[in-house]
Deep mutational scan, measured.
Amino acid sequence: WIARINAAVRAYGLNYSTFINGLKKAGIELDRKILADMAVRDPQAFEQVVNKVKEALQV
């Protein structure tokens, strides 16, 4: 799951650890299995999560 998430978030200019930190700051409580599945099956929803994380990180 970690490898999938890392590959997906790198397309948005983040790395895995920064993304996970941003999830916590944004108050998003999705587990890694769901995030990895979302990255593959629903990229639009995953992009929305990434955008919320970037807002929380102020990137």
Score class of each variant (00 low, 15 high):
15 N>S: 13
52 K>G: 05
17 S>C: 09
7 A>R: 09
7 A>H: 11
11 A>D: 12
15 N>Y: 06
22 G>C: 02
31 D>S: 08
25 K>E: 07
56 A>F: 12
6 N>D: 15
50 V>T: 04
59 V>Y: 10
21 N>A: 13
17 S>H: 10
40 V>E: 15
8 A>F: 03
31 D>E: 11
11 A>Q: 12
9 V>T: 04
48 Q>T: 07
20 I>P: 00
53 V>A: 14
50 V>L: 03
51 N>W: 11
33 K>Q: 14
19 F>T: 01
58 Q>F: 14
28 I>Y: 08
3 A>N: 12
52 K>R: 12
55 E>S: 12
3 A>L: 05
7 A>V: 13
27 G>K: 13
12 Y>T: 02
39 A>C: 02
12 Y>H: 07
33 K>I: 12
14 L>N: 00
10 R>Q: 12
48 Q>P: 01
10 R>N: 11
3 A>R: 10
30 L>H: 05
18 T>G: 08
30 L>W: 07
6 N>L: 04
22 G>A: 04
51 N>K: 06
7 A>M: 10
36 A>T: 04
16 Y>R: 01
43 P>L: 05
39 A>P: 10
38 M>C: 05
49 V>K: 02
21 N>M: 10
1 W>K: 03
6 N>M: 08
38 M>D: 01
40 V>N: 09
24 K>M: 13
16 Y>D: 02
19 F>E: 00
29 E>G: 13
49 V>R: 02
46 F>E: 00
58 Q>V: 08
32 R>M: 15
17 S>D: 15
4 R>F: 13
32 R>L: 15
48 Q>G: 14
10 R>T: 15
12 Y>C: 02
33 K>Y: 14
59 V>E: 12
29 E>Y: 10
40 V>S: 10
57 L>E: 05
20 I>R: 06
27 G>Q: 11
14 L>T: 02
51 N>Y: 15
30 L>S: 09
40 V>P: 02
5 I>N: 00
29 E>V: 13
13 G>H: 05
1 W>T: 15
45 A>D: 07
49 V>I: 14
2 I>V: 08
13 G>T: 01
56 A>P: 02
30 L>P: 08
3 A>G: 10
4 R>K: 14
41 R>A: 14
26 A>R: 03
9 V>E: 01
26 A>N: 04
5 I>W: 01
27 G>T: 06
23 L>Q: 02
37 D>H: 11
47 E>A: 12
48 Q>M: 06
59 V>M: 13
36 A>I: 10
10 R>K: 15
18 T>Y: 04
10 R>I: 14
13 G>K: 05
37 D>S: 05
38 M>R: 02
22 G>W: 03
26 A>L: 09
57 L>A: 07
13 G>E: 06
52 K>I: 08
53 V>I: 05
25 K>Q: 13
15 N>E: 10
39 A>S: 11
26 A>F: 02
49 V>P: 00
13 G>V: 01
42 D>N: 09
3 A>Q: 13
5 I>K: 00
29 E>A: 14
28 I>S: 03
32 R>S: 12
4 R>E: 15
47 E>W: 04
3 A>T: 06
44 Q>S: 09
48 Q>V: 12
43 P>N: 02
29 E>K: 12
49 V>S: 01
32 R>H: 15
38 M>G: 02
9 V>F: 02
35 L>Y: 05
21 N>W: 08
37 D>I: 06
38 M>N: 02
41 R>N: 14
27 G>C: 03
8 A>I: 04
44 Q>H: 12
54 K>R: 10
12 Y>M: 05
9 V>W: 01
41 R>S: 13
19 F>K: 00
27 G>P: 02
59 V>R: 02
28 I>V: 09
36 A>K: 03
57 L>S: 08
47 E>T: 05
52 K>C: 05
49 V>C: 07
7 A>C: 03
29 E>W: 11
18 T>L: 14
55 E>Y: 09
15 N>C: 04
48 Q>N: 10
24 K>T: 08
12 Y>R: 05
35 L>I: 11
37 D>W: 09
56 A>C: 05
23 L>T: 04
14 L>C: 02
41 R>I: 14
50 V>S: 01
7 A>G: 06
27 G>N: 14
1 W>E: 15
33 K>S: 13
32 R>E: 15
47 E>Q: 07
10 R>H: 13
26 A>E: 04
49 V>M: 09
6 N>K: 14
4 R>M: 15
1 W>L: 13
27 G>V: 05
31 D>H: 11
54 K>G: 03
2 I>F: 08
55 E>K: 10
57 L>R: 02
27 G>D: 10
8 A>D: 01
28 I>M: 07
8 A>W: 04
55 E>V: 12
28 I>G: 06
54 K>I: 13
4 R>C: 06
59 V>I: 12
19 F>Y: 02
32 R>V: 15
39 A>M: 09
57 L>P: 03
55 E>M: 10
29 E>S: 09
56 A>Q: 09
33 K>E: 15
48 Q>S: 10
15 N>V: 12
19 F>S: 00
40 V>M: 10
21 N>C: 03
32 R>K: 15
26 A>Q: 07
17 S>N: 11
19 F>L: 04
34 I>M: 13
6 N>G: 10
51 N>E: 10
44 Q>N: 11
38 M>K: 04
50 V>M: 05
23 L>P: 00
30 L>A: 14
14 L>H: 01
8 A>V: 05
2 I>T: 02
46 F>L: 03
54 K>Y: 09
39 A>W: 08
26 A>W: 03
16 Y>L: 08
44 Q>I: 13
42 D>I: 04
18 T>I: 07
51 N>P: 00
28 I>L: 07
35 L>K: 01
52 K>W: 08
47 E>M: 08
11 A>S: 08
44 Q>K: 15
52 K>T: 08
42 D>S: 10
44 Q>L: 12
10 R>F: 06
54 K>A: 07
58 Q>C: 03
13 G>Q: 06
4 R>D: 15
37 D>A: 04
9 V>K: 00
16 Y>G: 09
39 A>T: 11
19 F>P: 00
23 L>W: 03
20 I>H: 07
55 E>D: 13
23 L>N: 00
50 V>A: 05
52 K>Q: 11
57 L>C: 03
38 M>I: 11
45 A>P: 01
23 L>C: 04
57 L>F: 07
54 K>D: 02
5 I>D: 00
46 F>W: 10
